[in-house]
């Protein structure tokens, strides 16, 4: 290796890590602070979490968030996985078109995605509610799932399927017994990321949700706009914990038994 990393670079990197994480750590710490205003620490409490349980709007929003998250994740994971299989494992003409179409949702600003869907739903005279939120979330999640699953597929050894077929398995058996078991970690991590994005989304959801179908981020936004109170810290902490666990699991799945394509 050519030399050690200079100290001043380590200092900058350290400062950036503090910048990235300190605000969230402060946020979490103050969700346990019994002081309602101010920045002084007045003792540990779970009161703010307890208050969340008493609020019907938050419990209803949690339910909507879970329904939307699970529903949109299931649909986008299925469609995205199929898309990835088609793209990575088969020949067809029109590949450039499909690839470009996949990147449209990634470069389109959220606000544009949200209002264009709002216009479509208004034209279709579709009642805004849970179903329109699910449609919107599937629309922005499909591409991400496809990219994650496809990366896994491309790292996989195609020879194994061929070996299975030489040994007498037909294509169907080779697919289910060889391809799918290897692909599972990719599918699961795609699903975890899809759920995270659905659970976190505010901008698009706020545009396509109707009365009675507020998700957790929408309730948080309303609370932030009204006035800053410790309950927001508590609910934010819950959102942070849920997404961190999902991301950690996805990260582990992608690393552990990742296909060793480079060997």
């Amino acid at each position: 290796m050519a030399g050690r990393t200079p100290r001043w670079l380590l200092a900058i990197a350290g400062a950036v890590y503090v910048f990235l994480h300190a605000p969230l750590l402060v946020l979490v710490a103050f969700s346990f602070n019994s002081s309602k205003y101010g920045a002084s620490w007045e003792g540990f409490t779970l009161e703010w979490y307890g208050r969340l349980l008493e609020r019907a709007d938050i419990m209803a929003a949690l339910k909507v968030s879970l329904i939307v998250g699970l529903g949109s994740t299931a649909i986008s994971t299925l469609m995205g996985t199929m898309l990835a299989l088609g793209l990575a494992r088969h020949r067809f003409s029109g590949r450039t078109f499909v690839e470009s179409l996949l990147y449209v949702p990634i470069v389109t600003p959220e606000i544009v995605c949200g209002i264009s869907l709002l216009i479509l739903f208004a034209w279709m005279k579709l009642q805004l509610g849970i179903s329109t939120i699910i449609i919107a979330h599937v629309a922005f999640n499909i591409s991400y799932v496809t990219i994650v699953v496809r990366a896994r597929l491309e790292g996989m050894d195609k020879n194994l399927e061929e070996a299975a077929m030489i040994l007498g398995a037909n294509e169907f058996v080779a697919f289910w017994k060889v391809t799918v078991p290897q692909l599972w970690p990719g599918i699961i991590s795609g699903a975890l990321l899809a759920f995270t994005m659905s659970f976190d989304d505010f901008v698009i959801t706020s545009l396509v949700s109707g009365p009675g179908s507020s998700t957790l981020p929408i309730v948080v936004y309303t609370m932030v706009r009204k006035n800053i109170e410790p309950s927001i810290n508590a609910i934010s902490t819950i959102i942070l914990v849920v997404t961190s666990v999902m991301i950690y699991a996805a990260d582990r799945l992608e690393r552990r038994d990742a296909p060793q394509g480079a060997r």
Binding site: P23, V220, V224
Partner: peptide, 22 residues
């Protein structure tokens, strides 16, 4: 890397609120 990936996927709303809170 994980410490960079985590905020990458974390709720933008919650992170913006964290800035307001500070």
């Amino acid at each position: 890397m994980f410490l960079v990936i985590l905020p990458f996927w974390t709720s933008f709303l919650v992170r913006t609120f964290a800035m307001m809170f500070l």
